[in-house]
């Protein structure tokens, strides 16, 4: 028990929390963009799985993790296009069609994995650590912040990027307009469907990236690799009140809770039957968070409402 409270272990736990936060952060940032445009995408989990498998398989076959990452991104974008067609053009109920996307992703990636790979084969993931050379000289701070892989920095860099995109650009203004009042936006000449489609594609591309990051970080694929992370990411959008910084805070919280549970397992504080109880922590935390935030924060007014001119 005492071992847990040494500074170096706390630093290591926090650093691994930052690492574990990355898939949550990427997926939730993307989902936030889509929801700001008024589209709920419950298929994040499925898109993450598809992105993860695409990245894993490409990296396995080509030997290039970077190429795998690109394919994961591209597959996410394609899924975005499909989801945009389903929800924007066909006006499908967004909650249920997202579950359809999830089931498709779950079954499809399992199918492809069994058929194309069979037995789990490890890949060498994206291990480049751009600031590693600085980490040794900067002590604890370096250990905490400078010893991460490229994708971690990319993910956190996307927080200000998405913030800028939503709040400071014309596109972002249009995204918010079609999410709050599509009829008014339409009257002012904004192409509601085009803006929503773009937002969905951004969101799904980031979900694909989140899945790819997960696979390349773990270096393996298996059935249901994401294990509910995509769904937690959606909850984090609510937690973060649809704002990039809030989403980042939530992702870090979840990453650190997960890494703490892992660390306590490694330290044998949690063992045997306590492990599954500890593993419930993120899900229980999500429910509590939802209870706390649900009445406090208003969601985008037109969330889940398909746009039609005649209503």
């Amino acid at each position: 028990m005492n071992d847990f409270f040494t500074v170096s272990i706390i630093i290591a736990t926090l650093a691994s929390g930052i690492r574990l936060a990355v898939p949550f952060l990427l997926a939730a940032l993307g989902e936030a963009v889509g929801q700001r445009a008024g589209v709920l995408n419950l298929g994040v989990e499925g898109v993450m799985l598809i992105g993860a498998f695409a990245a894993y398989y490409t990296a396995l076959e080509s030997g290039s993790a970077a190429f795998g990452l690109l394919v994961g991104l591209a597959v996410g974008a394609i899924m975005g296009l499909i989801y945009a067609f389903i929800t924007v053009v066909m006006h499908a109920e967004q909650g249920i069609s997202g579950i359809g996307i999830y089931l498709f992703g779950l079954g499809f990636t399992d199918l492809l994995f069994q058929k194309l790979v069979g037995t789990p084969k490890p890949i060498s993931g994206l291990q480049a650590r751009p600031f590693e050379w600085l980490a040794d000289d900067t002590g604890r701070v370096g250990e905490l912040l400078l010893n991460h892989t490229v994708l971690t920095y990319v993910a956190f860099l996307l927080v200000p990027v998405v913030y800028f995109l939503i709040t400071k650009t014309t596109f972002g203004l249009n995204v918010r307009a079609v999410g709050e009042n599509p009829q008014a936006a339409d009257t002012l000449g904004v192409n509601v469907n085009r803006i929503r489609t773009a937002a969905i594609i951004i969101g799904n591309t980031m979900a694909g990236l989140a899945g790819a990051t997960l696979a390349l970080e773990i270096g393996i694929f298996q059935q249901n690799l994401t294990a509910g992370r995509g769904f937690i990411a959606i909850a984090l959008v609510y937690f973060g009140a649809w704002r990039p910084v809030g989403v980042m805070t939530g992702s870090l919280l979840f990453g650190i809770v997960s890494s703490t549970v892992l660390q306590l397992q490694v330290q044998d504080v949690f063992s045997g039957s306590v492990v599954p109880i500890a593993n419930m922590a993120p899900a229980v935390l999500t429910v509590i968070v939802l209870v706390v935030v649900s009445r406090r924060i208003g969601q985008p007014a037109a969330l889940t409402r398909p746009f039609t001119r005649d209503s």
């Binding site: 066909m90 499908a92 109920e93 999830y102 199918l111 058929k115």
Partner: peptide, 25 residues
């Protein structure tokens, strides 16, 4: 035909998408 039955789960997802996607239709 040596195609894993996970195919059925994937197809179930497609059915959901088509059913809710075609309500307007």
């Amino acid at each position: 035909v040596q195609v894993p039955q996970a195919l059925v789960i994937a197809l179930n997802g497609v059915v959901v998408v088509f059913v809710v996607g075609s309500l307007k239709l």
